[in-house]
Amino acid sequence: MTNGVVKGVHTLVPAVDIVETKNSYIVKLDIPGAAKDKIKAQIEDNSLRVSASIAEYGESGKESEPVKEYRREFALANDVDVNTIDAQYDLGVLTITLNKKVQFLPKEITIN
């Protein structure tokens, strides 16, 4: 079983930081050296799956075949709104913002 992994490619698990804010979860993954179009993030079976293949640059500036790959998967709890996910890639760090569903947000109740 190859699981879609190319032979001879190192598979790495990116380190992750997750911060919970009032309205969201902010997930940061270290994926240095990826071209933006080689990063995949998808929601499937209530899981967030992230993968990225990293190529090397030769002298000609041309990309080589992928030399390594990052993969990580997270199971999502039911408070995540899968329709408003935002992802950004900057400085080799992929930041994914998962918003909480409205009904899970803390509410202030006014006392009459």
Binding site: P14, R71, E73, F74, A77, D79, F104
Partner: peptide, 26 residues
Amino acid sequence: TFPSLFNEIDELFAPTYPLFNRVRFV
């Protein structure tokens, strides 16, 4: 409070994804 969003999934998925057994941590 709500169940932790990120359970110890890595272990959970190990049987379904044999790939996770031979990955190398950074």
